[in-house]
């Protein structure tokens, strides 16, 4: 298991972090500035003539109507939930894959069982008709 995060193990906690993070800090400042500058500029320069149309939310030029809390089809949420579950299982598969070459057959079997369990869940969803868009 010691080789799962080799690059992390190479850094010792008492490294000089200042230089390492300076670049990141500069990047952050530039990114924030890039977003804030146009807003500031328009707030300073642009003339203020509010009207009802200008105040309404922009939806690709269409007039917006109704409540934002509209109900989507249930299928949409089911997809999203299924995605959340299967997506997070990657946290187990990724370290396993990173350390793959040093692992025993037992680990391969264990991961096989794990993936089979996931596949069983997927098959269940499929046969129950959750994945078909009616």
């Amino acid at each position: 298991m010691g080789d799962v995060f080799p690059q992390l193990a190479a850094i010792s906690p008492d490294d000089a972090h200042g230089a390492r993070y300076l670049l990141l800090a500069v990047m952050g400042v530039v990114a924030v500035g890039f977003a804030v500058a146009p807003l500031l500029l328009s707030a300073l320069v642009a003339p203020r003539k509010p009207s009802e149309i200008k105040q309404s939310p922009f939806e690709c030029g269409l007039e917006s109507k109704g409540d934002a809390w509209v109900q989507f089809r249930v299928q949409y949420y089911l997809y999203a939930l299924a995605f959340v579950i299967f997506d997070v299982e990657v946290v187990f598969i990724y370290p396993w894959a990173a350390a793959f070459t040093n692992l025993s057959t037992g680990a391969l079997v264990a991961m096989g069982v794990f993936v089979l369990l996931l596949a069983e869940g997927l098959a269940y969803l499929w046969i129950k008709g959750v994945l078909s868009w009616k």
């Binding site: 949420y77 939930l81 959340v84 997506d87 997070v88 946290v91």
Partner: peptide
């Protein structure tokens, strides 16, 4: 903990 939190949130959102 990450995996379990995801399971809880999935059930919660459902």
């Amino acid at each position: 903990a990450i995996a379990v939190a995801a399971a809880e949130v999935a059930v919660g959102l459902a």
